[in-house]
Design a protein around this nucleic acid. Structure first.
Lengths: 177, 177
DNA sequence: GCATTTTCACCTAGGTGTCAAGTT
DNA sequence: AACTTGACACCTAGGTGAAAATGC
């Protein structure tokens, strides 16, 4: 209603605006380059190992709490902790499909909620949206960690991996509490 | 588009119709009468025990898979297995609030999906809907089962209660498998 | 005395990295 | 030789009724 071009959002919606104040937040993950990588253990670094495998078209993952109001977007954390990755190109569960040993850039898309679509967004170019990219979030997809520091980071930061933390090595006192 | 009165749905949408073919399915649970009950253990039956406590206005529980298409409604089971009940009138989790020791009738409402509301249905009378009632689903709300047959039924039919099934009484062979 | 809440052992369901086995 | 998959132990998270504790 401010006369923005379609396919581009401007800033400046004020706190009072209620009309059309519904937003979808989506994530996709796009290739950084056309390369395949391998890991050089002895020098602890990634090396180019050839040309990329043919990429699947990036899948859009809609944040499950959508639609958000602009107030929610201002006051709440929008976490994508439930997004799942797979290397199975035939996946039917809406997971994001990646090729292992390739580099990727996650992207966040803020999309004006269209009444009547119910979040069924298949093509970003048909929407009014703005994309946010955080270059520090680039990563290399793997099926097994190549680096023990990554393994330690995951074990220390993911509650489901608590069983592998150092402190869980028992000190032989696990009988008759 | 067939000229039905608002607030009432007719049958006869054919398989081909696509326009507006989105439906919400909701459940609410309404008091059967204005009575409070108690259970007579010695005769295994419910008795009237006085006048009902003041009822909270019935809450509408929207099926989480909404909206459905009419094809989905024809071909799939619509299960309300995730609905939760509580006796806490202050509940903020969208659970259905009931008074213990009162009789209730669950109801199912089929509601035409309104674009722009995103399933945010607060008042049924503002919608185009049809209600389905199954008298065999009337029940008495409790905080503890009053009848051992109910306890057995629940234990035998709910996977989470498997630990209480007869067959799980161990036969003294639970050492060193 | 009866109804409700709290705590608990026992489950289901599913998210972790490990390790062995399989694949290319 | 390097990468991928599947079975596994170990967790988190939470749904059961039993039994004890609490409330009215």
């Amino acid at each position: 209603h401010h006369g923005h071009h379609a396919h581009q959002l401007g800033g400046g919606d004020t706190a009072g605006s209620a009309e059309g104040d519904r937003w979808a937040v989506l994530m996709d993950i796009v290739p950084v380059d056309q390369k395949r990588y391998r890991y050089a253990y002895h020098r602890s670094s990634w090396l180019v190992a050839g040309k990329a495998d043919p990429p699947a078209p990036p899948r859009l993952y809609l944040h499950p709490d959508a639609p958000f109001t602009s107030e929610q977007l201002r006051k709440q954390v929008v976490s994508f902790e439930k997004v799942k990755l797979t290397n199975n190109e035939m996946d039917k569960n809406g997971q994001i499909v990646l090729n292992s040993m390739h580099r990727y850039q996650p992207r966040i898309h803020l999309v004006r909620w269209r009444e009547g679509c119910g979040g069924n967004i298949t093509d970003l170019e048909a929407e009014e949206y703005k994309t946010f990219v955080f270059p520090e979030s680039v990563f290399t997809a793997v099926t097994a960690y190549q680096n023990q520091l990554i393994t330690k980071l995951k074990i220390d930061s993911n509650p489901f991996a608590k069983g592998f933390r150092d402190s869980s090595r028992l000190t032989d006192f696990d009988r008759d509490p």
